[in-house]
Design a binder for these strands. Structure first.
Length: 832
RNA sequence: GCCGGUGUGGCGGAAUGGCAGACGCGGCAGACUCAAAAUCUGUUUUAGGCAACUAAGUGGGGGUUCAAGUCCCUUCACCGGCACCA
């Protein structure tokens, strides 16, 4: 052992030893309770950033702690390596995406290894390699066979910059989440996963996830957007065509004064064809469609519309009402058509007033006089009444509360076959095709005779060609590779053309946690027994930016795969920890702001243990963390302090066999140290086990170290007590600073890894104190502190408190109202 | 607009309704040193006082309670999510 802490030497030494002894490789073991600890796997951008360091440091503490608590811990790592950056880099640097990606992985893997994280690297995989994406394709076929993957033509989100379509979840405020370019709408034939089939279960089973932050569950709830209401059919007079309308307010059906179609609604064209409305309506529709998505869907955008020359009958009262087209109706939601009830809906109200459409009151507030006026002068009322009330002007429903109407009108509609109750979701099906090269090819071929055909399982994987040339247009090179494109129809053997779209990378990451349970399996995606042994993930850790996208897709996949009979679990992640961002100068680190701190540099300068310790100590995990160079210095100092402490005792500690944590103590110093030691074990254990409060766990360890320095100064030197204190200190520190702990453990004479030690247990007896400090309050203000024997009874304590000089003085001219006595804590004398 | 989160010393942050500010950073002082760095020790919410001590104090206002950073109401600021979803 060297007097000086040499992290470079130590960290390298142990990383090599751990790797060569496969310290972290794990197998199914029915004798032990399993624990699956998972951090979100990274996209291999080439360099680790501080967000990764935080994510993986947190995960490593959890994994190591659980291991020392006797669990069989699975803690794997891999690479989410398909995706657009590789293509962009390829175009820019003329390097094939595969090469760029694999180089990045190598680099990031080296960086990860330098952090000393307890990954079972034998389970590593790379999603862009055929041995993984073969199974992504195989799963696509499972979805296809079960009717959960389908192709349809629709108005899809197109990012002109990325030259590909996007899922709804990847559009943020009308712009591409990746590059912020405003998205456009395009009519394209695309592949979808039927996630809407699982909308209700995805919503309901959020209740089975008490270990998820409410914030994330609420976000998913909002995203799924369930609403209850009714569909109502309005019939066109001459053609008999039915316009289906979705509403959450069927109780206001008698107040409908017009019906509005979305500009994209196919009936618009059918109604106007050959009429005088044809040209102006077409012009209007075109104008709306040219608006950017951001403008069009903004609530502030002026509502505009146009009568299209058609009339429909309101099924509840047979009234003839006009059909309009308007910019505020979304084709994607509900039925793409709405009924206009200006009196009871704010948007309809503004629209009706602008175009002088009639406004009819059908719900009256409970406390107003019932009126018989069926129509209101638009100038007379100033806003829509959206609250509860009594139904009026509603035929036989008059006098009911609108709550009753919400149920009875759909019942009536159903009886006359003009509508039905309907639950609606905001959630759309997941668009998974991408017009990009660097992704898993969709295993479908198109035959002129047989149409779209699934590639047979035997033919998997559909290999992504690596020798490709990129076009400046951004078009996928797959469209121009004849060997890839031309193939045979699996059904008739005739000529067929391959699908050139690839899958959204979120498909790859929707099942990767299952692959870890059996990552080297060449025959199957994973063996069911292995998946069932390890699943669910007990603790999942990652950034909150995936609250909807990845976390909902993964839940969908798990449920679907369970339904296919591939595994038992219906939820992937039992507990979720969403870590906060790492900030510098109050904002997120970014190249453009020039406030990036490189993990590589920090590790080079201070070592991995210091970097890990700082990032865990500086803030609780779910909160944002402000980077502080001085804070890092502080942690480095602490580690050196531990080093020097152990070094100063290395002679005494070596070869001394104490009976661990059970030393008898007699002197005051010894008792204090023993109490501190056991208190620290208790605090650190509870902080890790119950709360993930790594910051306070570390501060408790710091206090123990301070205590040991003070003990040393008094020179009482109970060797057994020292031995057990040092050993416990090193073991407690092991999940946070694994290299330092391993080295010190060896220094004090151990041959087995510190990471195989079981977590120390504290002794309740040792925590007991003989004397406690009691706070004496008078009228709630602290006036005195008393040292009294611990566990003194209430009456005696009260007596002691009342006999103090302070109490007597205060009581001299006052009366006692009452005395509150909390044993071992305080006495509060209330005076008047 | 709706939903959620956060707000505590100079800074990061601690506090099962029971001593606000643990621990760390920074500052100040002492020891060691020829000196500095490093290290060790002490000190550090603010105001007043030589001091014992006193008063104020957890974004603002109000309330419940013997006792509130913590519970309730209200309000402000910042951050995040959703938002013409019928």
């Amino acid at each position: 052992m060297q007097e000086k802490y040499n992290f470079k030497e130590i960290e390298k030494k142990w990383q090599d030893k751990w790797e060569s002894s496969s310290l972290n490789s794990v197998k199914e073991d029915l004798q032990k309770e399993k624990y699956y600890c998972l951090e979100m796997f990274p996209y291999p951008s080439g360099n680790l950033h501080m967000g990764h360091v935080r994510n993986y440091s947190i995960g490593d503490v959890v994994a190591r702690f659980k291991m020392m608590r006797g669990f069989n811990v699975l803690h794997p790592m891999g690479w989410d390596s398909f995706g657009l950056p590789a293509e962009n880099a390829a175009i820019k640097n003329k390097i094939p995406p595969a090469t760029w990606t694999m180089d990045n992985i190598q680099n990031m893997k080296d960086q990860l290894k330098s952090m000393g994280i307890s990954y079972d690297w034998e389970r590593e995989f790379t999603t862009s390699l055929p041995d993984y994406y073969k199974w992504t394709q195989w799963l696509f076929l499972q979805f296809y066979e079960h009717g959960l993957a389908y192709k349809k033509k629709g108005h899809v989100n197109w990012c002109p910059d990325c030259a590909t379509v996007l899922a709804n979840e990847q559009v943020v405020n009308g712009a591409c989440e990746r590059c912020d370019t405003p998205v456009e709408k395009k009519a394209l034939d695309q592949w979808y996963f039927r996630i809407t089939d699982y909308a209700q279960e995805l919503l309901d089973s959020l209740e089975d996830l008490p270990g998820w932050p409410d914030k994330v569950k609420t976000m998913q709830e909002n995203w799924i957007g369930r609403s209850e209401g009714a569909e109502i059919y309005f019939t066109e007079e001459t053609t008999g065509e039915r316009i289906r309308v979705y509403t959450t307010r069927p109780d206001t059906a008698f107040g409908v004064t017009y019906v509005v179609l979305a500009p994209e609604h196919p009936m618009v064209e059918r109604f106007i064809e050959g009429t005088e409305y044809q040209q102006p309506v077409r012009d209007f529709v075109k104008k709306v469609q040219q608006m950017s998505e951001i403008v069009r869907t903004s609530a502030e955008t002026e509502k505009e519309g146009m009568f299209i020359g058609a009339y429909v009958l309101n099924p509840v009262n047979q009234e003839k009402i006009p059909v309009w087209v308007a910019n505020y109706v979304l084709y994607e939601y509900g039925t793409g058509a709405v009924m206009g009830v200006p009196a009871h809906d704010e948007r309809d109200f503004m629209f009706a007033r602008k175009y002088q459409l009639p406004i009819r009151l059908v719900i009256q507030p409970f406390d107003t006089e019932i009126t018989e006026d069926t129509e209101v002068n638009p100038q007379e009322i100033t806003e829509a009444y959206v609250g509860e009330g009594i139904m009026v002007n509603s035929g036989s429903f008059n006098g009911l509360t609108n709550q009753e109407g919400l149920r009875k009108i759909p019942e009536y509609l159903e009886k006359i076959r003009a509508g039905k109750m309907k639950v609606n979701y905001r959630l759309r099906d997941w668009l998974i095709s991408r017009q990009r090269y660097w992704g898993a090819p969709i295993p479908i071929v198109y035959c002129e005779k047989c149409g779209a055909q699934a590639v047979s399982e035997k033919e998997l994987p559909v290999i992504l060609p690596l020798d490709v040339e990129f076009r400046p247009t951004g078009e996928s090179p797959l469209n121009h590779i004849a060997e890839f494109l031309h193939t045979e129809c699996p059904k008739c053997g005739g000529p067929a053309r391959r699908e050139t779209d690839t899958m959204d990378t979120f498909v790859c990451s929707s099942w990767y946690f299952l692959r870890y349970t059996d990552s080297q399996n060449a025959e199957e995606a994973f063996k069911r027994e292995k998946a069932d042994y390890w699943m669910n993930v007990d603790q999942y850790i990652g950034g909150v930016e995936h609250a909807i996208l990845h976390l909902m897709y993964a839940r969908f996949f798990t449920k679907a795969l369970a339904d296919f009979g591939l595994l038992a679990a219906r939820e992937p992640f039992q507990n979720l920890l969403t870590q906060g961002m790492v900030l510098k100068e109050g904002t997120k680190m970014s190249k453009s702001k020039g406030n990036v701190v490189s993990p590589e540099e920090i590790i080079k300068q201070y070592g991995a243990d210091t970097a890990r310790l700082f990032i865990l100590f500086a803030a609780p995990p779910e909160r944002d963390l402000e980077w502080s160079d001085q804070g890092v210095e502080g942690c480095y100092r602490f580690i050196n302090r531990v080093w020097r402490l152990v070094y100063s005792y290395k002679e005494e500690l070596n070869n001394n066999s104490a009976s661990f944590l059970d030393t008898a103590v007699s002197s005051e110093e010894d008792k204090n140290l023993k109490r501190l030691l056991h208190g620290t074990i208790k605090k650190v254990t509870e902080d890790l086990d119950l709360r993930f409060n790594f910051n306070t766990a570390i501060s408790a360890i710091m206090e123990l170290v301070n205590g040991l320095y003070h003990y040393r100064e008094k020179k009482p030197q109970n060797k057994n007590l020292l031995q057990e204190s040092m050993e416990a200190l090193i073991v407690l520190l092991a999940p946070f600073a694994p290299h330092l702990s391993e080295e010190l453990w060896e220094v004090i004479g151990h041959t087995e890894s510190v990471h195989f030690q079981s977590w120390p247990k504290y002794n309740e007896e040792a925590l007991k104190v003989e004397k406690v400090e009691i706070v004496l309050q008078i009228n709630g203000k602290v006036r005195e502190r008393l040292i009294v024997p611990a566990a003194i009874d209430r009456v005696a304590l009260e007596k002691m408190a009342l006999s103090t000089e302070k109490a007597k003085a205060a009581m001299a001219d006052k009366q006692i109202v009452k005395v509150i006595t909390i044993p071992d804590k305080l006495v509060n004398i209330v005076l008047k």
